[in-house]
Design a binder for these strands. Structure first.
Length: 261
DNA sequence: ATGTCCACTAGGAGTGGA
């Protein structure tokens, strides 16, 4: 069972590129972030033709999340309770069947823009709400995944330049404490379970040749309960799909893929 | 630390967001 998360940076602009990736990687379940599209515009036909059923929580212009699955999927809920006015950022579904099913949530966490911006305290409050929501159902004994673009760099190992960025957006102690509180509800960072010491990134700015200069951040995670970790075979950041393919532009984020037994 | 890309409005570039 292969599960993935990917901030695609606009579904309209990325559809052909996404099809290349689905054909090559053949994941079973994918959480998408940043659809930038309303639900009635979502191209269900395109994904159904490839064997995927989709559930979506979108909006015009910005944000928006979806879950694609070629296993049985049952939509559970959309939207983080009490935080809906901050955009369409959460969708949750049960994927797979019986003992092999997983409670799968994908998230597009607020960016915050800068520590001086009004969005920064709102970002912190959003994470407090996420922790409270996760507490309601996360249980180490039950397979659950929270994945997505968290827009927080957890440690100095997850940024290309901690010295330059410590205290600035994505790199503050306040954000790191909020992310740790979400993890402390009973989750583990699947990439770090397999790669405890590797400096690896999942996002590179489009500007300044950041990808080729290795100026990136690891801000996209698959968080899983103990019941997921016990089935975990491998985790990969699919950085090849941060590159142009057949003249098509990539997202500024790479997919992250976990394989479970 | 900037050499980009996306969507919107509008009917061609400019703006806001990341």
């Amino acid at each position: 069972m292969q599960l993935a998360t990917w901030n695609i940076n606009g579904l309209r602009a990325r559809l052909d590129y996404i099809k290349l990736w689905l054909a090559e990687r053949e994941p079973d379940v994918v959480g998408f972030q940043e659809l930038k599209m309303e639900d009635d515009k979502f191209p269900h036909d395109e994904f159904e033709a490839l064997g995927y059923t989709c559930v979506t929580h979108g909006q015009k212009s910005w944000n928006g999340v979806a879950i694609l699955s070629r296993l049985p999927i049952e939509h559970i809920e959309s939207g983080l309770p009490g935080q809906e006015e901050f955009g369409a950022r959460l969708i949750r579904a049960r994927v797979g069947e019986g003992d092999a099913s997983v409670d799968f949530t994908t998230l597009y966490c607020p960016n915050g823009k800068s520590v001086e911006h009004d969005d920064f305290p709102r970002k912190l409050a959003w994470f407090d709400a996420l922790r409270d929501w996760a507490k309601g159902f996360v249980d180490p004994a039950h397979p659950a995944i929270l994945c997505g673009d968290f827009n927080i760099v957890p440690t100095a190992l997850d940024t290309w330049d901690e010295e330059a960025h410590a205290g600035s957006i994505f790199h503050t102690v306040e954000e790191r404490a909020r992310l740790a509180a979400v993890v402390d509800t009973g989750l583990r960072d699947l990439f770090r379970e397999r790669e405890p010491d590797t400096r690896a990134f999942s996002w590179w700015d489009y500007r300044g040749g950041a990808f080729h200069r290795k100026h990136g951040l690891r801000i996209d995670f698959l968080l899983g309960t103990d019941a997921v970790v016990s089935r975990l075979r491998e985790v990969e950041i699919d950085r090849d799909f941060r590159k142009k393919k057949d003249g098509l532009t990539a997202s500024d984020h790479a997919p992250v893929i976990a394989t479970l037994d």
